[in-house]
Design a protein around this nucleic acid. Structure first.
Lengths: 126, 126
DNA sequence: CTTGACCATGACATTGGCGTCAACGTTTAC
DNA sequence: GTAAACGTTGACGCCAATGTCATGGTCAAG
């Protein structure tokens, strides 16, 4: 299949597919006229990338997963490199959450001073 | 005082001060030679901006606070516009935290499948 | 042969808060 | 008078993942 069909089937733009290729994630074969030629496996790669992007991964983060799939594994996360990325991202997310909780507390504190009674309930507080 | 001194005293770069001016936050008087001339009140404005930026506000968010101070209020948050920004930012932070918790759960779920026992404790779990 | 739907590459725009040069004027001190 | 240290404006770079043109090749239907 060519890039337009893959884009439609994967629910992404052709621009994105070319960008993924440029970033070294999905390399397509080329037919005689220079058109990119894809197969079903490529559709899986794109799906993997999209699901990773939607949970906040970067394309760089997604590379090990794609490599894992291309290496023949049934899941992109079956490889130690992928697991390492998962663990790192989890730590990053935890850091962000911690930072946000601190910021929330600071803002809420200021708001309380400026306007007592204005503060809404905090995450997790009933 | 001129821009270099204000920058040193406020702990920011001259580049930032000029940028704040360009964004309409801090307008300096100009002396005959075209140099920006600041006073102590401007130092307070910059301090206000910095403290807001560090808790994740944008320069746009900071505008009402600066306006409040310039209007003569002792605190940048004494004006209803400022309070409104506080409330909005609080809601935004809560949204971000919610989104991050969702992402964390998704990533942790995937990691659990890929590598049982790898997942770290969640925020707030003892 | 032409229209239209594809495809290709290349390059600029977006968002925010600056860093960092460039190229040039001013002031200060020696 | 000249060098150092300051000031001015202007403009490009950065980061990420695209959107969106511009310009042009390919190909099937009519």
């Amino acid at each position: 299949m060519r890039i337009g069909e893959l884009a439609r089937r994967a629910g992404v733009s052709t621009r994105s597919l070319r960008y993924y290729e440029q970033q070294g994630l999905i390399m397509a074969r080329r037919s005689a006229n220079g058109y990119r030629e894809y197969n079903e496996a490529d559709l899986r790669l794109v799906a993997e990338i999209r699901s990773l992007l939607t949970v906040g991964f970067t394309l760089e983060d997604a590379k090990p997963f794609v490599a894992c799939l291309r290496a023949g594994h049934e899941s992109g996360s079956s490889c130690p490199e992928s697991v390492a990325v998962y663990r790192r991202k989890l730590a990053e997310i935890d850091d962000e959450i911690r930072a946000l909780l601190v910021r929330r507390a600071e803002v809420a504190g200021q708001l309380t001073v400026a306007c007592p009674g204005c503060v809404l309930r905090k995450q997790g507080e009933k």
